[in-house]
Simulated assay, not measured.
Amino acid sequence: MGTTITLAEEIMLLSLDDESGAVRQRQSVAPALAGAILLELVLAERVSISGKHLELRSTEPTGEPLLDDRLRLMETWLRRLSRRRVADWLMKDYMKVTGPVLERLGERGLVAEQVHKVLGVFPQRRYPEVDGTVERALRERLATAVLGNVRPDDRTAGLIALLHGAKLHRLAFPDHSPASVKPRMAEIADGQWAAEGVRAAVRDMQAAMVVIMAATVVAVS
């Protein structure tokens, strides 16, 4: 992994308001975070996805705490079953993943946790940006691929596919209308950027994220 931050942390950086540290579009961001970690585990060959099912291929640590924690949870969740549905894992994980991702960004010194008391009682956590260099480089990478029509590397393409699947176009490109960036993001998401198994996994994750987001809208309304 080196110093490369995870795809989930990249999505979180895009979603955080730099000044206030609030998470924007939280209901759509959470499923994207769970999908990003799962994609990372697929790319690291710890998990494989076939059709709508996932199975554990290796429990060997990746060296990235965020991924290794999920790997352990997934191993427990699967128990002695060889495979379970992708959508079931994402549905289980998306409610729990935001905190660990924010914590990891804090450990890296990219954001700082601030706790405010709402009405003097309820703690509300915010994560204003401390070091903006990583997010700036990330946004330049996205702009090069989407606005500049340059072929992205696999990780960037995977990130764009997840952002597109979770309808986070506005977070990725706040100065452009979603309609102006969607066609190119869709083209990248569908393109020849990785092995067919990985692309199929992303398609299944996108479908699962749509279901999750629809369920959360119903629950909230």
Rank of each mutant, 00 (worst) to 15 (best):
Leu78Thr: 02
Arg139Ile: 07
Gly51Tyr: 05
Glu10Trp: 04
Pro65Lys: 00
Gly35Ala: 15
Val198His: 13
Glu107Met: 09
Glu19Thr: 07
Leu105Cys: 06
Trp77Thr: 14
Thr3His: 12
Ser177Asp: 10
Met205Ile: 13
Lys117Pro: 13
Lys117Arg: 14
Arg79Ile: 07
Ile188Trp: 02
Arg104Trp: 01
Leu43His: 09
Arg57Gln: 06
Arg126Phe: 08
Ala172Asn: 06
Ala112Met: 07
Val29Cys: 02
Arg170Ala: 12
Leu71Gln: 02
Ala22Ser: 10
Arg46Ser: 12
Ala186Val: 05
Ala179Met: 07
Val150Ser: 15
Pro183Asn: 12
Ala179Ser: 14
Met209Gly: 04
Asp93Met: 10
Leu163Ala: 03
Val121Met: 06
Leu43Gln: 10
Arg203Gly: 12
Gly35Pro: 09
Thr76Glu: 03
Val86Leu: 15
Leu110Asp: 01
Val86Pro: 03
Ala157Pro: 09
Ala219Gly: 11
Thr4Arg: 11
Thr4Gly: 11
Ser28Gln: 09
Ala207Lys: 13
Val134Tyr: 04
Leu56Trp: 01
Pro61Gln: 07
Ser177Pro: 06
Glu40Val: 00
Leu33Asp: 01
Leu81His: 14
Met95Gly: 05
Arg79Thr: 07
Trp89Phe: 11
Ala137Phe: 02
Lys96Ile: 09
Thr62Trp: 01
Glu9Asn: 03
Val130Pro: 13
Leu162Ala: 08
Gly35Arg: 05
